[in-house]
Design a protein around this nucleic acid. Structure first.
Lengths: 205, 205
DNA sequence: GCCCTTACTAAGCGCTTGCTCAGAATAGGA
DNA sequence: TCCTATTCTGAGCAAGCGCTTAGTAAGGGC
């Protein structure tokens, strides 16, 4: 088992029943999609009746929004941490790709919801996460631009390269599952190597 | 308008009403997801009543299966064409990435369904497309292995590299939309450059 | 024009869904 | 132990869903 065990998600959420609902929702939303998941699915998986969900959350959509928001906050934090860390653009890009990739592998259930269930969010909640996504994209773009200006990266188009870097990490959430043998950290290292090669960083390959 | 106009999809499908239903289904499945799309949505968009759908297709799921199967066949064909084409591994990889990327950009609605609605397919239909997906993955993996053996590519792990190459193209379907300014062919060329850099092809960057 | 086939509709069915509500059960503090 | 607050349930509601059916309309061939 190389993914984050569900037991480790949202340790701060209380009461325990509310957390059980989140955990159950994540599994079902990630496995079958938001719209194909019923409140009965979630409640049953959490060991409760469907009505219990409404004691802790105002709606089914509120569960989705909570998962999406916290997932986006987490990925933004790790991207910004890497960007603000020590070393040159190549070192920081390596760390960014390692962490972003490993997170999508380890937390692929949340990652799937974060990346692919945006259209199911209520409009105001969508707007909030869209802003977080924009900050992630800008951070990556700025890092590549910095590396290109410093002659560390050689990319014909910064925006396209930034898109590609994020795509690699994001798509991990689609394909990574419990049976994938490669540990998240190792996948992150391998992806970092590939990305530095892609960006034409000297000393890469 | 840089994507394939819906009018160009499935020109061989007759009668015209059946094709209108496919076109309507593609737009709605891609935009909101299979499960959030009702038969009433599809029928209304096709200018018919919900019952008309059942004159041409046995079920809502049959529409999904048709779109998924034809989409997979198309992507498998373009991957295999590139792999069987002229030139060395780097030339063929360039063509593969260009075509795969451009297809996902131009036909991003179908691409979204192909890549992200697998869990909604009836089991037998899923099994059929899973086989097509496996062949796509194998073709790309074999090409990278060939390039590595010939010393044209330098990758520490062939399977991870193959995964990454496909991920770049696949994720285009998620983010590309009608407002994206970059034409599919140009995006394909840029991605091909990035991929050759990623694979450590000499002369790349 | 007639007949057959195909395409289509309006109406409605049985079932499912997100959610509400009144009452019951449980937990915690004095 | 008792009381209050919190947690939870069973039952059920209104709306919506995929699909069916009987009948109508349209198209094409002779």
């Amino acid at each position: 088992m190389t993914a984050t065990p569900p037991a480790d998600l949202w340790p701060e959420v209380r009461p325990e029943a509310a957390r059980r609902l989140l955990l159950a929702a994540v599994e079902s939303f990630a496995g079958r999609g938001y719209h194909a998941t019923t409140t009965r699915d979630i409640a049953t998986a959490a060991g409760m009746s469907p009505a219990a969900l409404y004691v802790h959350y105002p709606s089914k959509a509120a569960l989705l929004s909570e998962i999406s928001r916290t997932g986006h906050q987490r990925t933004l934090a790790l991207v910004e941490d890497a960007a603000a860390g020590p070393g040159g653009p190549d070192d920081r890009m390596r760390r960014l790709v390692e962490d972003f990739t490993a997170w999508h592998a380890r937390t692929h259930t949340v990652g799937r919801i974060v990346q692919y269930e945006l259209q199911a969010l209520p409009p105001e909640d969508f707007a909030a996460v869209a802003e977080l996504r924009h900050r992630i994209e800008e951070t990556v773009r700025a890092m590549i631009a910095e590396g290109a200006a410093a002659g560390v990266f050689a990319v014909p188009d910064v925006r396209t390269a930034a898109r590609a870097v994020l795509s690699l990490g994001i798509d991990v959430a689609r394909w990574y599952n419990e049976r994938t043998a490669e540990p998240p950290e190792e996948l992150g290292r391998r992806y970092a190597d590939l990305v530095l090669g892609m960006l034409g960083a000297r000393g890469s390959a």
